[in-house]
């Protein structure tokens, strides 16, 4: 049985505050008092699958802009209001010590597909995500401005808020759904797998799916 990550009452309150702040913002206000607090909004880790690529790509989702050739492909269920993609500052999604790369808006399902660059282990495969790691929405910022120091600071905030962490069972369940290693040539090909996941978990996002399925013009 797949198990949901159940939040503490405190974490849920933070989530509500974050969503409320987001709604206020869409009306033109700034973020509310919850702005400086992390909001752990991940309800369920639905899918986890490691991937490797022959050709790396530039990781624009953090300030260091590392070259990425391996990582984890995750599907998360979050409150749709918090998942919505906007122009203005929104909460950055963190997975452990990495920023997650968003691929869809999660509307209206709340299911978002993300890639998370991850170090390769000694076997050349993406290292496992450890139990005890946290997946959470941090404070609002542009991911491209988030560096290691900022991530460390965000992790401290998350820890202080006692946000729930992944259990071994959570990870095992999600990896069972995700299946084995995904090997692709490049990020373009990775996009096809992402399109399939979006179609499965957030099928209303047809434009995004179609876009990711466009093949290189001969």
């Amino acid at each position: 049985m797949r198990r949901s990550i159940i939040f503490s009452i405190g974490a849920l309150a933070l989530t509500v505050a974050a969503v409320t702040a987001h709604q206020q913002r869409s009306q033109g206000g700034g973020l509310g008092d919850a702005e400086g607090q992390p909001a752990s909004a991940v309800v369920t880790l639905l899918h986890a699958q490691p991937y490797v690529m022959e050709e790396s790509y530039t990781g624009w989702w953090r300030a260091e802009q590392p070259q990425v050739d391996a990582g984890w492909l995750l599907v998360l269920r979050v409150p749709p209001g918090l998942a919505e993609l906007r122009q203005s500052l929104t909460r950055v999604l963190y997975v452990g010590e990495e920023t997650a790369e968003r691929w869809n808006s999660g509307q209206p399902t709340g299911n978002i597909v993300v890639t998370v660059p991850w170090e390769r282990g000694a076997d050349g495969l993406p290292a496992p995500i450890s139990s005890g790691e946290c997946i959470w929405f941090g404070t609002p910022e542009l991911p491209e401005r988030v560096d290691a120091a900022r991530i460390a600071s965000e992790r401290q905030l998350a820890a202080s808020a006692q946000l729930p962490v992944l259990t071994a069972e959570d990870l095992q369940d999600a990896q069972q759904v995700g299946g084995g290693l995904l090997e692709v040539r490049d990020s373009h090909e990775l996009g096809y797998a992402i399109a399939d996941l979006i179609e499965t978990y957030s099928p209303e996002e047809t434009v995004t799916i179609e876009t990711l399925r466009i093949t290189p013009t001969e």
């Binding site: 913002r25 869409s26 009306q27 033109g28 206000g29 700034g30 906007r86 122009q87 203005s88 500052l89 542009l142």
Partner: peptide
């Protein structure tokens, strides 16, 4: 505009 609101104090908008 409900996103890039143009509101004073709305960082980046």
């Amino acid at each position: 505009d409900g996103d890039v609101t143009g509101a004073p104090g709305d960082t980046g908008a």
